[in-house]
Amino acid sequence: MVNADFLNDLIALSARIGADPSLVQGGGGNTSLKRGDALWVKASGTWLAHAHERDIFVPLPLAQVRDALRHDDGETRVNLLSQGLALRPSIETSLHALLPHALVVHVHSVATIAWAVRRDAQTQLAQRLDGLNWAWVPYRRPGHRLTQVVAGILNTRTPDVLVLGNHGLVVGAADRAGAEALLAEVERRLRLPQRDAPSSQPQRLAQVNDLHWAPAPLELVHALATDAQALRIAAGGVLYPDHAVFLGARAAVVNDSECLSAALARTAAECGAAPCFALVPGAGVLTAPDLSDGAQAMLHCLALVALRLDGEAALAELGESDVAELIDWEAEKYRRSLMRTPN
């Protein structure tokens, strides 16, 4: 472990939020600390929950990162600054560097996502976040493109809270206490009730499971097939980046007259890729044998989000080109490769 006492607060905060699936799932989310001319930022694909046990932060020269952001190829320039490091810095490094706050926290808050995927998100959030120094950021692919949009906002003011459309939440503060207090306040204001869902039906799952896929290990995940509204969401489009990156563009839906293999073949023919999980309406969810722990965590997140959406609000799903770009992006392929290693 890096012997740097000044990182203790960052490590403690990161481990705490990383252990809370309502804030961070698997290797998602990232945190950073600026100290002098160094930016300490979470490494791509590492888990915040492991902050106490593993070295998950990498140092970068802050002034040089910020200088790189002034160029159209800023993302490439930032990557060059990390050459020689054992771990890659987070995809969101440019955003962490841009923000002036000493401590920055980016989470995939379930409550925030449940608002940020709505077409009326800005109106709803304006009511709930009134009085806070916040800003809405329309969806852009994570990384430099997103940072460029935030840079435009910072030309006129410096918000302490950013709600990222179809993505998540960012808070910035001077220290750990300030970041924790601000994060807790936003979570309090955006909290949504979670619906109770019907139980899974193991017998029905077994009947269609001719490929011997595993039932989802968490009962809550089965709500994606047993709750009518959650089923519509899970069978529909993609809502946020990690939904696409770790769960793919489409789930298979096993119709009444089908077995699992037939549903997978039909879905693969329709969308050009093999699904990694299957929804059996009214019964539950089946997962591919090689589905990583990280992807399982993303299924859990999808269930948490879907059970907070009531069906009355229109959703702003990511476009097909947005989804394809995320899935094919080399930076996300790298993150997926780390998810396949034991955690």
Rank of each mutant, 00 (worst) to 15 (best):
M1I: 06
M1Q: 04
D9P: 01
I11R: 05
A12I: 11
L23R: 03
Q25Y: 05
G26V: 02
G27K: 02
G29T: 00
G29S: 03
G29Y: 00
N30D: 04
K34Y: 03
K34A: 00
R35Q: 13
H52A: 06
D55G: 02
I56E: 00
V58D: 04
L60W: 07
V65L: 13
V65R: 15
R66F: 11
D73K: 13
G74F: 09
G74C: 09
G84Y: 00
A86V: 08
L87A: 06
P89C: 11
S90W: 03
E92Q: 02
T93S: 03
A97G: 01
V105A: 03
V107P: 00
H108M: 07
A121I: 05
L125A: 03
L129M: 05
D130P: 01
G131L: 01
A135T: 05
V137G: 01
R140T: 05
R141A: 11
P142Y: 00
R145G: 10
Q148D: 05
V149E: 10
G152P: 02
N155H: 12
V161A: 07
V170K: 05
V170C: 04
A173D: 10
R176S: 06
A179L: 09
E180K: 00
V186N: 03
L190C: 04
R191N: 06
L192A: 11
L192I: 12
Q194D: 04
R195A: 14
R195S: 09
P202I: 08
L205V: 11
N209E: 14
D210V: 14
D210G: 13
D210L: 14
P217N: 08
P217W: 12
A223W: 08
A225F: 08
A225I: 09
A234M: 06
G236L: 12
Y240M: 07
F246N: 00
G248E: 02
A249C: 09
N255D: 13
D256S: 15
C259M: 09
L260K: 02
L264D: 03
L264E: 05
C271I: 07
F277R: 06
A283Q: 09
M298V: 15
L299K: 01
L302I: 10
A303C: 12
R308E: 06
G311E: 04
A313C: 13
L315C: 13
E317R: 15
G319V: 12
E320L: 15
A324C: 13
L326K: 11
I327K: 06
K333G: 12
L338Y: 08
T341A: 10
